[in-house]
């Protein structure tokens, strides 16, 4: 009969109207600032630099190799390697700037980094009134501790720790027969296997 389709539709909307009061499957709105959702472990937004130990700048794992700068598709990373007074590279970044207004959160920097020095952050409330300087993150803003990394990506961080420990053991084993004071000869470990 003409009109049955219309009546069926009305029944469905009525069902949803009633359902939205008692059925959490139907009422799906999450009111964000009051009800924060738990982010999945793999969630990513912008990169940060991992440091070991207590000193944010001195403990950076980054060795300013500029691989991420080269591989970054939108070219949002800018690195100047630090040099000591004699002009030799100290294997630390002097400048490590990341423009989050350009960054597209693709995670390629993380994948190509052989030192596990750059990882993806989960902190997303970074709105600022200053669209130029406020969104240009410097070395100091980017440095975050290994403990923080463990807190946001526990599984991945544990794997990274294993890989780093393995690399360290290998390096030590290699360094023993050779000159003991040659940290520069540490070979970069293989890129980490993709985390779970």
């Amino acid at each position: 009969m003409l009109g049955t389709g219309l009546l069926k539709g009305l029944a469905v909307t009525a069902k949803n109207f009633v359902g939205s009061f008692h059925d959490p499957k139907r009422y799906t709105t999450v009111e964000y600032p009051e009800q924060p959702t738990k982010l999945p472990e793999n969630y990513r937004n912008f990169p940060f630099l991992v440091f070991d130990g207590e000193q944010p700048i001195d403990g950076l794992r980054c060795v300013a190799c500029k691989i991420c700068e080269a591989e970054c598709p939108p070219q949002c990373i800018y690195i100047i390697p630090d040099r000591d007074e004699k002009g030799r590279p100290t294997k630390k970044p002097k400048v490590f700037d990341l423009d989050v207004s350009v960054c597209m959160s693709c995670q390629i920097c993380v994948e190509v980094c052989p030192f596990d020095a750059i990882k993806m952050d989960q902190h997303f409330e970074i709105a600022t009134a200053d669209r130029f300087n406020g969104l240009l993150l410097h070395r100091e803003d980017l440095a975050k501790s290994d403990a923080y990394y463990h807190s946001i990506h526990p599984t991945e961080a544990a794997q990274v720790d294993e890989i780093l420990a393995e690399a360290k053991r290998k390096a030590e084993a290699k360094a023993k027969p050779a000159a003991p004071a040659a940290p520069a000869a540490v070979k970069p470990p293989e890129p980490p296997a993709p985390a779970v």
Binding site: L2, G5, K8, G9, A11, V12
Partner: peptide
Amino acid sequence: ELITGNEIL
């Protein structure tokens, strides 16, 4: 059910 049989659609 909501829409496919709807005469208007």
